[in-house]
Nucleic acid binder design. Structure first.
Lengths: 255, 255
DNA sequence: GCTTGACCTTGACGTTGCGTCAACCTTTAG
DNA sequence: CTAAAGGTTGACGCAACGTCAAGGTCAAGC
């Protein structure tokens, strides 16, 4: 009989890991000691060492402990597991690539003085979380249209568009807070700018050649009041009501 | 006064996140409610909404909450923080690229029937954790030499080399277990194969033109006994002793 | 026989960013 | 009055250990 039996610190050093890790692997059942002495000390033999080697190899490849356990139990499907893992690694890499692009875009915008992070960035098209409701309200492909339009813009164009929106929102809120009436010249001028702004979004009636601009603008105003997520842009329900009324009047008289 | 003040669920929906997240941001001090009512309910105003927008924007870029807090507090250094973040993202991407390459190499080896995961993978050169000691024993650049040699090999060559090593280890252990003496013909033949195997590693005296093969092989045998990490390849100390003696005799008589 | 030091053990907390109950109020609508 | 929403504060869970903490074991030196 050889004395092929090491204390925990030994194989740890032998395999290039720590005793804590071995205890962890024991506790999760990934690698149990080949022998536990009466005093509770863990001992490992060559077979355990080989298994440990494999575990560490797979860990270096980025697999999680459950995945490693699975690979070691069902060695036949090891290749399939590894290939699935490569797929996951690739998707992670792509995600990182997108993040890098976004961050650099942001840096460039900030350097150009475009305060991307400065204003209210709310609107009905650029955020994905309302997909279902946007589709429900405006038709199945309204969301897709709005989204593709939005994604088609460069970072600068997006920033420009958002800034025009933010300016509009500010002015609407100021006008409402100032106690102006929806029919006042100031409110009507804002309505004109608002419609102009809407017309810059392709795919809506406001920008289509023979679109029902009037109905669209009136309906949109109603939505600002009905939906607090849009109404938020205008200072809440009261502000949204003001905007709706001004838009309705403007649409009736000018569109 | 406007009623620009929303309940927690409102801004959550408004910003596309959850109330739990907002409570979390409150608890970590990243975003405190603009007002807390007598009943404990959190309320947020437009300023809070704007801040939340920025937080979520930065979060999408992959920044951690402490980093986000730092960026928002010191807006001047925002660009620097973002650039540092890009650097980290790039390093992560490189790490993933290396992992992908390794996993694919492993898959290819397994498919070729090379059981990379099947045998004892111990030797003095392929693992990095003994760098200090290898350098101490064999000189400052021994490690670097061994490592660069090893890394210069392709996956297939590595697997081949490891298999030859594993076969040698097996045979040594079998011979020692069989009770053979170090001077027996079997042991001496193993010693010959061992030296041959060593000679396949460039940068050692065994492969150098005028190297001190004799001293090298004898010293290596001593190390197998002295260091359990190497001795493990030969069935522990007894096995390593057998190998050392056989190598010493072989070196004396043939080198 | 005792001390020292090295090594072992079993907890248990910390890490990152919330998701997900759980137990318990409040407010609002019917 | 009651039920349905929605709010609150805990507290656990996740991944894989690092890092104390408190305390047993063992070989060696006095």
């Amino acid at each position: 009989m050889e004395e092929t039996d090491w204390a925990i610190h030994r194989i740890a050093a032998l395999a290039g890991t720590t005793s804590r890790t071995l205890r962890h692997y024991d506790s999760v059942g990934l690698l149990t000691p080949s022998r536990v002495a009466g005093n509770g000390y863990r001992h490992y033999d060559q077979a355990a060492l080989v298994r440990l080697q494999r575990i560490l190899l797979l860990r270096e490849l980025g697999l999680g402990l459950p995945a490693i356990a699975a690979v070691l139990e069902h060695q036949e499907s090891a290749v399939a597991a590894l290939e699935a893992h490569v797929g996951w690694l690739r998707s992670e890499q792509e995600r990182l690539a997108r993040q890098i692009a976004s961050v650099e875009e942001t840096i460039a915008s900030v350097l150009k003085g475009k305060n991307i992070m400065a204003e209210n960035m709310f609107d009905g098209f650029d955020h994905t979380q309302y997909r279902d409701e946007v589709e429900e309200r405006w038709g199945k492909d309204a969301y897709a249209r709005g989204d593709s339009w939005w994604r088609g813009l460069g970072a600068t164009a997006r920033a420009d568009w958002k800034e025009r929106q933010a300016a509009l929102n500010r002015d609407w809120i100021a006008a409402a807070a100032g106690g102006a009436s929806a029919s006042s010249p100031g409110a009507q001028e804002l309505a004109r700018r608002h419609v102009e702004w809407l017309a810059s979004i392709p795919g809506t009636p406001a920008s289509a050649p023979g679109g029902d601009v009037r109905g669209y603008v009136t309906g949109l105003g109603a939505m600002y009041v009905a939906d607090p997520r849009f109404g938020a842009n205008y200072g809440g329900e009261a502000g949204a009501t003001f905007v709706r009324d001004a838009l309705a009047l403007y649409a009736e008289q000018n569109l």
